[in-house]
């Protein structure tokens, strides 16, 4: 799993990101100012840096200049000014996130960057199921299970956002594409098939009034 450095001076936001990263299996490292951030990059070699732009000590852009060759960076900014965004990407940042953000969006962007830098997880195991995420194969008790592309897409989303409940709409949007004209029942049907095929009746949970969640039991 990826080690992700969070450089954010606001304690609450820092804790929020850390809690969610931990949930989906990443290892967060929390720092609260720019100088600490540079030190942490040098000593702990994280796979990704989430970098707040406005920080005491050393601001995000200055940190970026120092560590740009050592770690991929996603900027977090409260300012919606266009200059910031351009400058952020111009400095070689992988992406940027504007506050207030949706945590699912943050996780999706982190996953994208990790995939680009090949720091993402290739293999995921739960109970008797083994998923080869890069090869797109699924094995139950070492026997390959045939999944439709849609089913695999659904499984992948559940794995990336594990321990987090996803709404049916969110699943539909992510797995079938934004324009898909199906109703949310489609999701229920696919979830049922997935549970049956992989024998994950307990693990793929229905969360009251929210949606579905892949519960991994322990964290990570």
């Amino acid at each position: 799993m990826a080690r992700i450095l969070i450089a954010e001076d606001d304690t609450s936001i820092n804790m929020l990101i850390a809690a969610n990263l931990r949930l989906v299996g990443h290892t967060p490292i929390q720092v609260y100012d720019g100088i600490e951030a540079v030190q942490a990059v040098r000593t702990q070699h994280p796979d990704l840096l989430l970098l707040d732009v406005m920080m005491p000590g050393l601001d995000g852009f200055s940190v970026m200049e120092k560590v740009r060759d050592e770690v991929p960076v996603i900027f977090i900014t409260a300012r919606t000014g266009l200059e910031d965004r351009l400058q952020g990407l111009g400095y070689g940042a992988e992406d940027y996130i504007v506050k207030p953000f949706e945590i699912l969006e943050v996780l999706a962007r982190i996953e994208n960057v990790l995939r680009r830098t090949h720091k993402n997880q290739n293999e995921f195991r739960i109970k008797d199921v083994r998923v080869d995420l890069d090869g797109r194969h699924v094995y139950l008790q070492d026997q390959e299970v045939t999944l439709t592309p849609q089913e695999f897409q659904l499984l992948e989303i559940l794995i990336i956002n594990r321990n987090l409940a996803l709404s049916r709409e969110k699943i539909l949007e992510t797995a079938w594409g934004y324009d898909y004209e199906g109703d949310t029942r489609t999701v229920d049907v696919h979830i049922q098939r997935l549970r049956k095929k992989l024998n994950l009746e307990q693990e793929i949970q229905t969360v009251y009034k929210v949606g579905y969640r892949l519960q991994t039991g322990g964290k990570g």
Partner: peptide, 14 residues
């Protein structure tokens, strides 16, 4: 952001 984030966290996780 923090309030919404933690409210969602409570809603979506165990």
């Amino acid at each position: 952001t923090a309030i919404k984030g933690f409210a969602q966290f409570l809603q979506r996780t165990e």
